[in-house]
Simulated scan of single mutants.
Amino acid sequence: MLAITLRLSPGDDLRAALDHAFRARGLSAGYVLQGIGSLSVARIRYAGRDDASELRGDLEILTLAGTLSAQGPHLHMSVSDADGRVIGGHVAPGCIVRTTAEIIVANLPGERYAREHDAATGFTELVIRAT
C-alpha cells in the first residue's frame, strides 16, 4: 500500500480534484483514508434521495471516506456548520473548498477498481479485480 497526501486549495471542487489526482498518478485502485478541512459549499445526497442538497456557509469537513476508480470516485462525508450541526451523506460534484482540504489516499497496486451495474441493487457498484 502506498499513501498519498493531498492538499486542496480554496475554490477547488473536492470531488473533481480527488478524481484528477487519482487519474494523473495513473492509479488503478484507491481509497480515501481520511479527509479534513473546510468547505464554502457542500453538495450532499442523503440516503434514499435522488438529488443532492446544497449547504452554504462556513463548513468543516469532519470525515471523508470512499473509493477511487477509473469510473470516478464514490465518496461519503460528514460536515458541521458554524453552529456545530452535523450532516452527512454521499459527496456530489460541487463541494467547494473554503480554506483547505487535507486528504490521505491509499493506493492498492495489486488491485483494480471498477464500477459496474449490479442487477441486485440497481446501482453502479464497486467491482474489485486483481491486476
Rank of each mutant, 00 (worst) to 15 (best):
I4G: 01
L8I: 13
S9D: 05
S9A: 13
S9I: 11
S9M: 11
A16S: 13
A16P: 00
L18Y: 06
H20V: 11
A21C: 05
A24E: 12
R25K: 14
G26F: 03
G30C: 08
Q34C: 03
Q34F: 05
G35P: 02
G35S: 05
G37P: 02
L39D: 05
A42T: 10
I44Q: 03
A47E: 14
A47T: 14
D50Y: 08
S53G: 08
L55S: 11
R56T: 15
R56V: 11
D58V: 10
L59R: 08
E60A: 09
I61W: 01
L62K: 03
L64F: 01
T67Y: 13
A70R: 15
H74M: 12
H74P: 00
H74E: 15
L75K: 10
S80F: 00
S80D: 02
D81W: 00
D83H: 09
G84W: 04
G84M: 07
G89R: 08
G89V: 05
G89K: 07
H90P: 01
G94L: 09
I96M: 11
V97Y: 04
T99D: 15
T100D: 13
I103L: 07
I104P: 00
V105R: 08
A114H: 09
A114V: 10
A114M: 11
E116A: 12
D118P: 01
A119W: 06
A120W: 03
G122E: 05
E125D: 15
V127F: 02
I128N: 02
I128F: 01
I128K: 11
R129N: 09
